[in-house]
């Protein structure tokens, strides 16, 4: 008998905000918390996609053998007797500033505004630079991982990073898909698509796509 294959994921007990919670080994902190109805804010997380760890808003405090450290809940795997805090002065300070950083780019995003209220973030703290995109990568990753088309991607690095539709792929794939639109927390994605459409799609593209 192949014991390994039949062995169930072993159940472990962890502690979140003082509550003892059952979790399965291999789960992330976020998954364990969601299963126990404990809210941890996320921006770049999506259950259909691989954990990404870019927005850092799900940062929580963990205690392992007496050592506390800050980790991202969407990436950190739970382990036996792990002690997790989802709110603290330190965590709130990080979340507040992350929101303030992002609100400078997308002040109208409802998702950001709701969280800003919770964490007391001031949307005018940093000078506005309305790129409207918070670079959560949901569209890019959805297109790559679920649709396997890579019609939208990241270009440039650092402060110049942005998303772009690749006209050749987008012209063939996007007109009848657009599944990524509803994932976007700021609706910038639609604007980026329309821009690509108007600048780089030929008339033939539309006609062939619409006939499909």
């Amino acid at each position: 008998m192949m014991m390994g294959k039949q062995k169930k994921m072993s159940e472990i007990i962890i502690q979140i905000d003082g509550k003892k919670i059952k979790a399965a080994e291999g789960m992330t902190i976020l998954e364990a918390a969601q299963k126990a109805d404990i809210f941890i804010p996320t921006l770049c997380h999506h259950e259909k996609l691989q954990p990404y760890g870019a927005c850092r808003i799900c940062t929580v405090e963990v205690e392992v053998r007496g050592w506390t450290s800050l980790v991202t809940a969407c990436l950190y795997p739970v382990e036996k007797d792990l002690v997790i805090k989802t709110r603290s002065k330190k965590i709130d300070k990080i979340r507040k500033m992350i929101l303030e950083f992002l609100l400078a780019h997308a002040p109208c995003s409802l998702q950001l505004q709701d969280l800003a209220q919770e964490y007391g973030a001031d949307q005018d703290r940093f000078e506005k630079e309305s790129s409207f995109c918070i670079l959560c990568g949901l569209c890019v990753r959805y297109c790559a991982e679920v649709k396997k088309k890579n019609a939208v991607g990241f270009v440039n690095c650092g402060a110049r990073r942005e998303i772009r539709f690749i006209p050749e792929i987008a012209a063939a794939e996007c007109i009848n898909c657009k599944e990524c639109f509803e994932l976007c927390p700021t609706s910038y994605l639609q604007a980026a698509f329309v821009l690509t459409e108007s600048l780089a799609f030929s008339r033939d593209t539309f006609q062939t796509a619409l006939k499909k």
């Binding site: 870019a54 992350i98 950083f101 402060a159 110049r160 990073r161």
Partner: peptide
Amino acid sequence: SNESCGKCVPCREGIRQMLR
């Protein structure tokens, strides 16, 4: 600010604001 890959918010935006 050019060396940062730009993936995570604290680095990309933190450097941007500190530089500003």
